[in-house]
């Protein structure tokens, strides 16, 4: 059955250690549980989580929403943010996990990408190269979130024109952000037959839209 693939890229670098990452976990739990209440999402959404710090890991391979169980997320105490490497792994996984339409198989829906970071790429050269690769994958939508005061929105604007920012790294901000992500995914799962970018719902006040 065709799925709506959703990739979540989450910054787990040292600065996310502690309260921020705990808030992200709570946000992810809320996201999964609210999507599970939506019939269209429940039958079509598949979720993958890639974390990036010094290392990059796909901690959740693309898994249908009804089957998935959230894995543990850990953060090192300090270290670089390999955003470029994360995009590289993303492209590899998309190539492997997302079905293209052929005469024999029905293609999946265009994948969605949400990337959240509280800093800037430490591997800027790779990051730049990988932006081109990501664009070739024809995501239905790419939403980037610059979380907290040290996040560099201008780096994310090179990846997508849909960049939002959070002023703080506290649980309220993340909760609102993930609720909004969940609404966006839900709209995506209902927009069957959509050819252009899937429309995003208006973000809540805690989530600033950067233009």
């Amino acid at each position: 059955m065709r799925i709506l693939p959703v990739y979540l890229l989450i910054d787990t670098s040292g600065s996310m250690h502690g309260e921020p990452i705990e808030s992200v976990k709570v946000g992810l739990e809320a996201l999964v549980s609210s999507l599970r209440q939506e019939p269209a999402a429940l039958e079509s959404v598949a979720l993958s989580i890639i974390t990036f710090d010094k290392d990059v890991k796909q901690i959740l391979p693309l898994t249908p929403l009804d089957e998935l169980q959230l894995p543990e997320i850990t953060t090192p105490e300090s270290g670089p943010t390999h955003t470029g490497l994360a995009l590289q792994l993303l492209c590899e996984r998309v190539d492997k996990e997302v079905k293209k339409g052929t005469a024999e198989t029905k293609g999946d829906w265009k994948p969605l990408l949400f990337i959240m970071t509280d800093g800037k790429p430490s591997d800027s050269k790779l990051y730049k190269d990988m932006i081109e690769e990501v664009k070739k994958r024809h995501f239905g939508n790419i939403v980037a979130c610059a979380a907290g005061p040290s996040a560099k929105a201008e780096e994310l604007l090179k990846l997508t024109d849909k960049v939002v920012s959070l002023d703080t790294l506290d649980s309220t901000a993340f909760k609102k952000f993930f609720k909004w992500v969940s609404d966006s995914i839900n709209i995506g799962s209902q927009s069957v037959g959509a050819t252009d970018d899937i429309a995003l719902p208006p973000p809540p006040p805690e989530v600033n839209l950067i233009l």
């Binding site: 293209k100 339409g101 029905k106 293609g107 829906w109 265009k110 024809h138 069957v192 050819t195």
Partner: peptide, 10 residues
Amino acid sequence: EGEFSGQTRF
């Protein structure tokens, strides 16, 4: 049909 579901012409 395109490479992804839902892609078509109008």
